[in-house]
């Protein structure tokens, strides 16, 4: 009898813990009041509207978008051939490469950010945007390699051999047979990389400088000065954007198969 109550109760608490903060933020974004507070005072769209008028948000959104798209594309361009080579050939040191490629997942972002700043950006005089781009590419790379590897593992190599016997070159077989069959995995990797980059804070924190900030860093900075519900409004917008992308991906690709 007690078990019958305990299970749904536990589930409810876990859900509350996971979704509660999100509900609070969303509720706060529709507040009519002047400060970030919960429960919200009144109801209005004014803070949602305000988000679009803040110049620094618009700029940092552009920066974040550029980093998320550019970084993910770069990571895929590096990651797809790497994953392919590791899955098809028994390369010497493949395990080492696999390990190194996974490091950014394990090493705390703070350490990566600080190390990049102290030993790369400052001594080499690398422009900040380029440093951010490289850092994001490196951060996304492990996800790209993993997700693409997973879909390559399901693809039998004899298909490529069949293509070669029918007259295709090795590269031709890759383009005509391998790529079309892993396009779901590639799109999944793209979405995962995009969201990872877009939400990235610790590394970007160290590498943001005058004039160049990612959106999350800009939001942190904004909150230190202004404490109005527009931050909640922006957070909600971003959350719904992410959810929308993932839902679309799930709908059309079965995204959850890949992650």
């Amino acid at each position: 009898m007690t078990r019958n109550i305990l299970a749904p109760l536990t589930l409810g608490l876990v859900l509350l813990f996971l979704i509660g903060p999100f509900i609070i933020i969303v509720a706060a974004s529709f507040s009519a009041g002047e400060t970030l507070a919960f429960p919200p005072q009144g109801f209005s769209f004014k803070w949602i509207a305000k988000v679009f008028t803040v110049e620094s948000f618009r700029q940092s959104f552009g920066t974040s978008l550029f980093l998320a798209i550019g970084g993910t594309l770069a990571a895929l361009i590096l990651g797809i051939p790497a994953a392919y080579a590791m899955s098809r050939y028994r390369l010497p040191g493949a395990e080492t490469v696999r390990f190194m490629v996974s490091l950014p997942i394990v090493v705390p972002g703070i350490v990566v950010g600080l190390a990049l700043l102290r030993y790369f950006v400052i001594p080499a005089g690398v422009p900040i945007l380029l440093a951010l781009f490289l850092a994001h590419t490196a951060l996304i790379l492990p996800y790209a390699v993993r997700v693409v590897s997973a879909s390559l593992a399901n693809l039998r190599s004899d298909m490529e051999e069949a293509a070669v016997i029918l007259g295709a070159s090795r590269i031709g077989a890759f383009v005509r047979v391998v790529l079309p069959n892993i396009r779901g995995g590639i799109l999944a990797a793209f979405i995962l990389g995009f969201v990872t980059s877009f939400n990235q804070v610790p590394v970007s924190l160290f590498l943001s400088g005058p004039g160049v900030r990612t959106l999350p860093i800009d939001m942190l900075g904004y909150m230190e000065i202004v404490f109005d519900p527009s931050i909640a409004a922006l957070s909600s917008l971003l959350a719904f954007l992410s959810i929308g992308i993932v839902l679309l991906a799930e709908r059309f690709l079965g995204f959850s198969r890949y992650v």
Binding site: R156, D158, M159
Partner: peptide
Amino acid sequence: LVFQSYALFP
């Protein structure tokens, strides 16, 4: 060569 697994392009 006809593979044992057929190796068709799905």
